[in-house]
Every structure is written in structure tokens, then in C-alpha cells.
Deep mutational scan, measured.
Amino acid sequence: HHGSGALAALHADGPHAGLPVTRSDARVLIFNDWEERKRSEPWLRLDMSDKAIFRRYPHLR
């Protein structure tokens, strides 16, 4: 199991509170979210491209 239990660094406060600090933090969040959702949506594709990251977390651009 590759990303399970990996912890992402999140901004503690300010405008980005609760959001990932780096792209690799964002990838951890996206992976964990996908892993949760694919139980009920097995067709869901995992997209951890930069484009997917920016779409979801525009502050990382």
C-alpha cells in the first residue's frame, strides 16, 4: 500500500489554513481522498498530475 498513512504538511493558519504546503503534500491528500472514494466509486481514476493539483489547490501554482 503505497501512500496510506502518509501525512501531508498543511498550512496551520492564514489564508491557506488546512491546505497542503507543497505539491508532494497535495499528492498525499489527493491519493488518500482517491483511496477513500474508490470504495464507493471503483471506476474513479487517480490523477496526481500537476494540472490536477493546480485545479484542486490553485494556491500551489
Rank of each mutant, 00 (worst) to 15 (best):
residue 41 E to M: 08
residue 15 P to T: 06
residue 29 L to I: 08
residue 24 S to E: 14
residue 32 N to C: 12
residue 31 F to T: 05
residue 58 P to I: 02
residue 44 L to K: 04
residue 34 W to D: 14
residue 45 R to P: 10
residue 17 A to L: 07
residue 40 S to L: 12
residue 5 G to F: 10
residue 56 R to N: 05
residue 34 W to V: 01
residue 41 E to L: 06
residue 41 E to N: 08
residue 17 A to Y: 08
residue 31 F to D: 15
residue 23 R to F: 12
residue 12 A to P: 10
residue 43 W to C: 11
residue 17 A to R: 13
residue 51 K to F: 13
residue 34 W to P: 00
residue 20 P to T: 01
residue 7 L to K: 13
residue 25 D to M: 04
residue 59 H to K: 00
residue 52 A to G: 14
residue 12 A to E: 11
residue 25 D to H: 04
residue 17 A to M: 12
residue 51 K to C: 15
residue 22 T to H: 06
residue 42 P to C: 07
residue 55 R to V: 09
residue 40 S to V: 10
residue 40 S to T: 14
residue 51 K to P: 12
residue 14 G to N: 04
residue 39 R to N: 11
residue 43 W to P: 02
residue 19 L to M: 06
residue 25 D to K: 15
residue 44 L to W: 04
residue 29 L to N: 07
residue 4 S to P: 11
residue 54 F to A: 06
residue 19 L to N: 03
residue 4 S to Y: 11
residue 60 L to K: 00
residue 20 P to H: 01
residue 42 P to A: 05
residue 14 G to Y: 04
residue 39 R to V: 11
residue 25 D to P: 01
residue 44 L to E: 09
residue 9 A to M: 13
residue 46 L to K: 01
residue 15 P to E: 06
residue 16 H to E: 05
residue 37 R to G: 04
residue 7 L to G: 11
residue 12 A to W: 08
residue 32 N to R: 14
residue 3 G to T: 12
residue 60 L to Y: 00
residue 42 P to T: 05
residue 47 D to C: 06
residue 23 R to V: 15
residue 59 H to N: 02
residue 14 G to V: 15
residue 54 F to W: 07
residue 56 R to H: 12
residue 9 A to Y: 11
residue 28 V to N: 05
residue 2 H to F: 15
residue 60 L to I: 02
residue 47 D to Q: 03
residue 6 A to Q: 11
residue 35 E to Q: 14
residue 8 A to F: 07
residue 55 R to D: 13
residue 11 H to G: 03
residue 34 W to Q: 00
residue 20 P to Q: 01
residue 54 F to S: 05
residue 33 D to I: 13
residue 47 D to R: 02
residue 55 R to H: 10
residue 49 S to H: 02
residue 58 P to D: 01
residue 36 E to Q: 11
residue 22 T to G: 06
residue 32 N to A: 11
residue 32 N to S: 08
residue 3 G to R: 11
residue 26 A to I: 01
residue 46 L to S: 00
residue 54 F to P: 00
residue 25 D to R: 02
residue 37 R to W: 02
residue 52 A to F: 07
residue 52 A to M: 07
residue 23 R to Y: 15
residue 57 Y to F: 14
residue 11 H to L: 05
residue 54 F to G: 05
residue 42 P to H: 08
residue 25 D to S: 10
residue 25 D to Y: 06
residue 48 M to E: 02
residue 47 D to I: 03
residue 12 A to I: 13
residue 36 E to I: 14
residue 50 D to A: 07
residue 45 R to L: 14
residue 48 M to R: 02
residue 4 S to C: 15
residue 31 F to Q: 05
residue 40 S to Y: 15
residue 40 S to Q: 11
residue 37 R to P: 00
residue 48 M to W: 15
residue 31 F to M: 07
residue 33 D to C: 07
residue 10 L to M: 06
residue 42 P to M: 10
residue 9 A to K: 14
residue 44 L to H: 06
residue 6 A to I: 15
residue 18 G to N: 05
residue 47 D to Y: 04
residue 35 E to K: 15
residue 19 L to F: 04
residue 27 R to A: 07
residue 58 P to Q: 02
residue 45 R to G: 07
residue 43 W to D: 12
residue 26 A to Y: 02
residue 60 L to R: 01
residue 18 G to P: 03
residue 51 K to W: 11
residue 2 H to R: 12
residue 6 A to S: 13
residue 49 S to Y: 01
residue 51 K to H: 09
residue 28 V to P: 00
residue 4 S to M: 13
residue 6 A to Y: 13
residue 16 H to Y: 15
residue 59 H to V: 00
residue 45 R to T: 10
residue 13 D to Q: 10
residue 38 K to L: 07
residue 28 V to I: 15
residue 8 A to K: 14
residue 40 S to W: 10
residue 18 G to V: 03
residue 2 H to G: 14
residue 16 H to F: 14
residue 17 A to I: 11
residue 19 L to W: 04
residue 27 R to E: 07
residue 59 H to R: 01
residue 53 I to A: 00
residue 57 Y to H: 00
residue 8 A to V: 13
residue 39 R to W: 09
residue 39 R to I: 12
residue 53 I to H: 02
residue 3 G to K: 12
residue 38 K to I: 13
residue 38 K to R: 14
residue 31 F to E: 03
residue 53 I to D: 00
residue 58 P to R: 02
residue 38 K to G: 04
residue 53 I to W: 01
residue 41 E to K: 09
residue 55 R to E: 13
residue 28 V to T: 08
residue 43 W to Y: 08
residue 14 G to I: 05
residue 61 R to G: 07
residue 28 V to H: 06
residue 2 H to P: 15
residue 57 Y to R: 00
residue 16 H to N: 11
residue 47 D to E: 05
residue 27 R to M: 11
residue 50 D to T: 07
residue 38 K to C: 12
residue 52 A to I: 06
residue 58 P to H: 02
residue 17 A to V: 10
residue 16 H to S: 06
residue 38 K to P: 14
residue 21 V to M: 14
residue 30 I to S: 00
residue 53 I to T: 01
residue 22 T to C: 07
residue 30 I to T: 01
residue 61 R to I: 11
residue 41 E to S: 06
residue 7 L to Q: 13
residue 39 R to Y: 10
residue 47 D to M: 03
residue 57 Y to K: 00
residue 26 A to Q: 00
residue 30 I to E: 00
residue 51 K to R: 10
residue 9 A to T: 13
residue 35 E to H: 11
residue 42 P to S: 05
residue 48 M to A: 04
residue 4 S to W: 12
residue 4 S to I: 14
residue 23 R to L: 15
residue 20 P to L: 03
residue 25 D to W: 04
residue 26 A to G: 02
residue 3 G to D: 10
residue 29 L to G: 00
residue 7 L to R: 12
residue 2 H to V: 11
residue 18 G to W: 04
residue 42 P to N: 04
residue 27 R to N: 01
residue 25 D to F: 03
residue 48 M to F: 07
residue 20 P to D: 00
residue 32 N to E: 10
residue 45 R to W: 06
residue 25 D to A: 06
residue 11 H to C: 07
residue 59 H to P: 00
residue 4 S to F: 15
residue 51 K to D: 14
residue 27 R to C: 11
residue 27 R to F: 03
residue 38 K to W: 07
residue 38 K to F: 08
residue 34 W to S: 01
residue 44 L to G: 03
residue 12 A to L: 12
residue 30 I to Y: 01
residue 42 P to E: 03
residue 11 H to N: 06
residue 38 K to V: 13
residue 41 E to A: 06
residue 44 L to T: 06
residue 53 I to F: 02
residue 1 H to C: 14
residue 23 R to T: 11
residue 24 S to N: 12
residue 35 E to G: 05
residue 46 L to F: 03
residue 36 E to W: 08
residue 24 S to D: 13
residue 60 L to C: 00
residue 21 V to K: 13
residue 38 K to A: 13
residue 23 R to A: 10
residue 47 D to T: 02
residue 51 K to N: 12
residue 58 P to M: 02
residue 45 R to A: 15
residue 40 S to R: 12
residue 59 H to Q: 01
residue 5 G to V: 12
residue 31 F to C: 08
residue 9 A to N: 14
residue 26 A to T: 00
residue 12 A to N: 09
residue 15 P to S: 05
residue 50 D to Q: 05
residue 14 G to W: 04
residue 57 Y to V: 00
residue 45 R to M: 09
residue 60 L to V: 00
residue 40 S to H: 10
residue 56 R to L: 11
residue 5 G to E: 09
residue 25 D to V: 15
residue 20 P to E: 08
residue 45 R to C: 14
residue 16 H to P: 03
residue 55 R to L: 14
residue 33 D to G: 04
residue 42 P to Y: 05
residue 8 A to C: 08
residue 40 S to N: 14
residue 7 L to D: 08
residue 39 R to E: 10
residue 45 R to H: 09
residue 36 E to C: 12
residue 2 H to W: 13
residue 35 E to W: 15
residue 59 H to E: 00
residue 35 E to N: 13
residue 59 H to D: 00
residue 49 S to M: 02
residue 43 W to S: 08
residue 12 A to K: 13
residue 13 D to L: 07
residue 59 H to C: 00
residue 22 T to S: 09
residue 6 A to P: 10
residue 13 D to K: 15
residue 12 A to D: 07
residue 50 D to E: 08
residue 5 G to K: 12
residue 58 P to S: 02
residue 11 H to D: 02
residue 46 L to R: 00
residue 3 G to H: 11
residue 24 S to Q: 12
residue 15 P to W: 06
residue 59 H to T: 07
residue 25 D to I: 03
residue 27 R to T: 03
residue 31 F to Y: 14
residue 2 H to C: 15
residue 16 H to K: 05
residue 54 F to E: 07
residue 58 P to V: 04
residue 49 S to D: 03
residue 18 G to A: 04
residue 15 P to K: 06
residue 46 L to G: 01
residue 2 H to K: 13
residue 1 H to T: 10
residue 46 L to M: 12
residue 1 H to Y: 13
residue 6 A to F: 13
residue 31 F to A: 04
residue 5 G to Q: 15
residue 49 S to G: 04
residue 1 H to G: 12
residue 8 A to H: 10
residue 55 R to G: 09
residue 48 M to N: 03
